[in-house]
Amino acid sequence: MFDFISAIPAAGSVINALAVIAGSLIGLIIKKRLPERITMVAFQVIGLSVLALGIQMTLQSKNVLIMILSLLLGAILGEALELEDRLQNGLKGLRTRMIERGWQFGGDHLVEGFLTAFLLFCMGSMAILGAFEEGVGKPPNLLLVKSMMDLVSSIALASTLGIGVLFSAIPLLLYQGGLTLGAFYLNSFISNALIDEITAVGGVLLLGLGFSLLHLKHFKVFNMIPSLLLVVIFSLFL
């Protein structure tokens, strides 16, 4: 089985993305049959779960200065580039085209669904370690386990947040696949400390997303995405 899988570039990430697509489709089918009050409760539980996971991930930082500096400069860069506004406009345009073609899956939480799924599926240690594991030539055991977990999670997310969850499979594939290729070429630069700092920054992004989902305070989380690149640079050179 692993001989077949290893013949596909970044096979673990490909399987993971397919699992998210399959789970999202199941969730979209279920969504139509759920009462609104059930959807509302599920939405609140997801928000609280995102907050809890964000706290857990943030505490993994061993160098708070690097985390703060990455987030600060990353947020400023993202705001200057208006990343979240561009994302919103792009997804809304896609939703409009789907509605014109008779698709009614967009819902009111298209952007929230996309961001929530992307951050949950991509920012955890398992995503990073799994991609690195495959990148150094080992079987993608971690990513296969993660795929099963994401299959279940995407069912729950899509049934609550809609089709945005399905679209998260695209950046998931690009992100994890990119990490796999990066690990292949930059294996000597990868350390547990680097993984901890990436995870911690991802945790802060999840905290911002959790507050937004619960309507406690809106944060433009996608504008903070450049922080994930900056934390790698700072961790390597500071």
Score class of each variant (00 low, 15 high):
143 L>E: 07
143 L>C: 04
145 V>I: 15
145 V>L: 12
146 K>R: 15
146 K>G: 14
147 S>L: 08
147 S>F: 03
147 S>V: 11
148 M>F: 12
148 M>R: 07
148 M>W: 13
149 M>V: 13
150 D>V: 09
151 L>P: 11
152 V>Q: 09
152 V>L: 13
153 S>Q: 15
153 S>R: 03
154 S>C: 12
156 A>M: 09
156 A>K: 01
156 A>F: 15
156 A>Y: 13
157 L>V: 09
159 S>E: 04
161 L>N: 03
161 L>A: 02
162 G>N: 04
162 G>D: 09
162 G>M: 07
163 I>V: 15
164 G>D: 03
165 V>L: 01
165 V>N: 00
165 V>C: 01
166 L>F: 14
166 L>R: 11
169 A>V: 14
171 P>T: 02
171 P>N: 10
174 L>G: 03
174 L>K: 08
174 L>F: 11
174 L>I: 15
175 Y>W: 15
175 Y>H: 10
176 Q>K: 08
176 Q>A: 05
176 Q>G: 04
177 G>D: 07
177 G>I: 06
179 L>F: 00
180 T>N: 06
180 T>G: 05
183 A>H: 05
183 A>M: 02
186 L>D: 10
186 L>I: 03
188 S>Y: 11
188 S>L: 05
188 S>H: 15
189 F>Q: 08
189 F>S: 12
190 I>S: 09
192 N>S: 12
192 N>K: 12
195 I>Y: 02
196 D>E: 02
196 D>P: 01
196 D>R: 01
196 D>V: 00
197 E>S: 01
198 I>M: 12
198 I>K: 06
198 I>R: 04
199 T>C: 06
203 G>H: 00
203 G>I: 10
204 V>P: 13
205 L>P: 07
207 L>Q: 06
208 G>Q: 08
208 G>F: 03
208 G>S: 06
210 G>K: 11
210 G>P: 10
211 F>V: 09
